[in-house]
Design a protein around this nucleic acid. Structure first.
Lengths: 156, 156
DNA sequence: CTTCATGCAAAACATTTGCAGCTGG
DNA sequence: CCAGCTGCAAATGTTTTGCATGAAG
C-alpha cells in the first residue's frame, strides 16, 4: 500500500541521466517495479501496467525490464520452471523468503549472511561479486489458512 | 575422473525400487549425472550420453531428468536466462559456487549455512523446507587465464 | 526535427507432448 | 507377453527481434 515515490524518482532519474527517454509506458513499468514489494513476474507487471495504460504491449514491458536490468536497477530471480521474478526496490543481492503456496517473495532479515561471500572468497580463491540466497517454505498466513496437504516436502 | 559407482548404483536401485525400467538410455543418463561434478545442463548431458549411446533422443534425456527430479534424486538449478543445471550427486540443497566465466559449478564448504534455515524459520514463522545458496564469481583458474575485461561488476 | 521507443507479428529457444513401434522384466 | 519406454515431430510457452509508425526531447 505504501507508495515509494523515492524509489520511483530514483529510477526515473537514472533513466534520464543515462539519456533514455521517459515514455508513459516506461513510467508505468517503473511505477509498478518501484511499488511492488512481492517481486512480480513480467506477466504480473504487464497486467498491472495495463490498468494505468491499456495499450502497452508485452514486448515493451520486456524491453523496459531488460533495460533496467542492464542498468543494474532491478534484480532478476530466475526459477527452474522458467518463471522470472523482479525486484525493483533493492537491486543488490539479498536473501529472499519464498512462499511456495501463495508465491509471494519477501525480504527477511538474515543474521550473518553478509559475511558469507567474503568468507567463501577467502576459503576458495574465487572472486565473488554476487550471490543468491533463497529460502523456500510456507508463510505464516498460508499455514493458518489451511493445513496444507502433505506433498513433496519429505522424501519417501 | 573419479567415477562414483556408488552413486550410480544408488540411482539405479531407486529406479528399480520404484518400479521403473532400466533402459540403456536411462542408464547412460544416470551415469552422466552420477559422475558429473560440475552440474551439467540437459544439453550437456545429452551430448555426453550420445557418446555412449548415439541414438538417444533429447526428449528421452528430458524425460529421465524430470523423472529423477520427481523422485527427489536430482537437484535442479534454474537461472534467469532460462538455462537449467542439474546436480545428481547431492540432491539435497547445499551452497553452490558458480564461475560466470567458465560456467562451472562447484560445491564449496560454507561454514554456518546449515543454521540459516532454522534461524530464519524462528525469526519469521515460515516453515522452511528448502533453500538455495548460490555465489557468483570467477574461479581461480579463470582469474589466472586472463585478466577479465572490466565489465558489469562495478556500477557506474 | 531526429532519434529512439512502441506495437505488432514473426522468429527463436527450450521444454513438453502425442503417438506408433519397440523392449525390458 | 504387455505396460512402460523410446524417438520423432509437432505443440507449447516464454522471451526476443525486425520493422514501420509514432512521439520524446
Amino acid at each position: 500500500m505504501t507508495v515509494d515515490h523515492g524509489r520511483l524518482d530514483e529510477l526515473i532519474a537514472r533513466l534520464k541521466e543515462q539519456g533514455f527517454r521517459l515514455t508513459p509506458q516506461r513510467k508505468a513499468v517503473l511505477k509498478v517495479l518501484a511499488n511492488s514489494v512481492h517481486h512480480p513476474s513480467v506477466e504480473q507487471i504487464y497486467r498491472q501496467v495495463k490498468k494505468d495504460f491499456p495499450m502497452t504491449s508485452l514486448a515493451t514491458v520486456y524491453k523496459t525490464v531488460t533495460l533496467l536490468k542492464e542498468l543494474g536497477e532491478v534484480l532478476e530471480l530466475g526459477f527452474a520452471d522458467g518463471s522470472n521474478r523482479y525486484d525493483g526496490r533493492k537491486p543488490n543481492p539479498h536473501p529472499h523468503l519464498i512462499c511456495v503456496q501463495c508465491h509471494r517473495i519477501l525480504d527477511p532479515d538474515v543474521v550473518g549472511w553478509k559475511d558469507l561471500p567474503q568468507a567463501l572468497s577467502d576459503s576458495t580463491g574465487f572472486r565473488i561479486f554476487s550471490h543468491r540466497l533463497d529460502f523456500y517454505g510456507i508463510c505464516p498466513q498460508c499455514q493458518k489458512r489451511r493445513k496444507p496437504k502433505r506433498r513433496g516436502a519429505g522424501r519417501s
